[in-house]
């Protein structure tokens, strides 16, 4: 377990505070220009306390990384345009597979090499793959310095690690690398 630095505590507290604003509905009050000072103060105290305890689990490398506007907008572009397109394609594919009377599936677990260094990038790619219907990341393991994902795939088109990786990851890996590295 890495130790929490001051910057990671600050960024965790900021994130907690933003979610406090969202969930208590204070953001709408702020827009209208009539914020309640009590709610804001309580939120600030709670988010700083929570951040002190949980920052080391949450953010421990390069805390203010996403404040770089170029990276942030790349992330936004990925989350709003690139990923939903992949999501809709995969959704249609799996939906028609399930409704097809012949049930054309060929499940298997393939091994896919991944070249990402940052922990955030690795978990983001793994979660993107899991969220896409048709593929679930079962585990990730390092072997001879090469990181591998084990992915359950509903329609195995190729058993070769490289080809399977190209078919599953598509352009996602490059986008994730552009965001985090």
């Amino acid at each position: 377990m890495k130790k929490a630095s001051i910057s990671s505590i600050i960024s965790t507290a900021l994130l907690c505070f933003v979610f406090w604003l969202l969930i208590t509905g204070e953001l709408a009050a702020l827009i209208k220009g009539e914020p309640s000072v009590q709610v804001l103060a309580a939120g600030a105290v709670v988010s700083i306390l929570v951040a002190c305890f949980s920052a080391r689990f949450f953010i421990h490398e390069r805390a203010f990384y996403l404040l770089n506007p170029k990276r942030f907008f790349t992330l936004l572009f990925y989350a709003v345009i690139i990923f939903p397109i992949e999501l809709i394609k995969a959704n249609l594919d799996v939906a028609f597979r399930a409704l097809n009377p012949k049930l054309p599936i060929k499940p298997g677990i393939v091994k896919v090499p991944v070249d990402l260094k940052s922990e955030y990038a690795q978990s983001m790619l793994a979660n993107s793959i899991t969220l896409t219907p048709g593929t679930i990341t079962v585990d990730m393991a390092e072997e001879d310095g090469q990181l591998n994902y084990y992915i359950h795939w509903i329609d195995v088109k190729s058993q070769e690690p490289k080809e399977a990786g190209d078919a599953i990851k598509g352009t996602l890996e490059n986008w994730v690398r552009r965001i985090w590295e």
Binding site: L87, P107, P133
Partner: peptide
Amino acid sequence: AGTVGLLRMPDAFSRMQSSTNIATM
């Protein structure tokens, strides 16, 4: 479609795949 898949798929992992259909779109 996800529910139909959930009922028709042959094993646990494929069922999970089909249920991500419901979970996303």
